[in-house]
Amino acid sequence: MQALYGQLVVGLINGSFYALLSLGLAVIFGMLNIINFAHGAFYMMGAFAAYFLLNWAGLGYWWALLLAPLMVGAVGVLVERTMLQWLTGLDHLYGLLLTFGLALVIQGVFQNEFGSSGLPYAIPAELRGAQNLGFMFLPNYRAWVIVFSLVVCLATWFVIERTKLGAYLRAATERPELVRAFGIDVPRMITLTYGFGVALAALAGVLAAPINQVRPLMGADFIIVVFAVVVIGGMGSIMGSIVTGFALGLIEGLTKYFYPEASSTVVFVIMAIVLLVKPNGLFGRTA
């Protein structure tokens, strides 16, 4: 039973990362009509930013949690201003191809600098240790990751669905020209949205740094699973992304316990089934 609970926690952790990443993908897709293939690379950059901050600037985990998303988000803003903005009006696929090239460049540069092996990043002192829940030991850091991701996801949902800023954002997603006519600076909103989505990925990277090691390719295969999560959930709804992310993490954890051979493929199998039954995804609107 211990092992089952352990795998469930691991599943929820992965689910937190799926949720944070697919949320960012959905927000970016909504505004820019681009599938951000470089999302996995930005996730990796978040983890590396935490590593740099600690080893070069002496700033610990809590600073990294704040600064790494801002730094990587700024890179995202730069990318949008210098490259992605020129793709408006072109077919979606060019955005996918451009960000794919971007991912190759970023991951290649980091691989040249740091090799393929992992760099260690310690769990912050405040979150070491574990709680005895009676039926299992829950490491504090893992509990923190799950709770904090959930809070960030729900806060994002709240801002987009329940505030005035979110209303502008949703309006600009539907009818950008009309929103512009009301005097709102839509291009700047698009830039900042991209930066925000990228920052979410970087935040997931910081959270992942003490659990998985800091590796140049940590996001490369991971992002493909996130794509499957996105196909399963559909990108139409913010809450949908969050729920699908956590649920699939849990299912993956269960599979690791009951049938470990299938744990790397289970998300893809679920995707195939969903495509058969509900081609637009569980929460998707008809395209």
Binding site: H92, L93, V225, F227, A228, V231, T265, F268, L275
Partner: peptide, 23 residues
Amino acid sequence: LAIRRQGIYFAMTTLALSQMVYF
């Protein structure tokens, strides 16, 4: 499976299925 979705979803679906084949 894949032709049930279009555009960007088609690309993501084929990518995910090929990753499954890889595993």
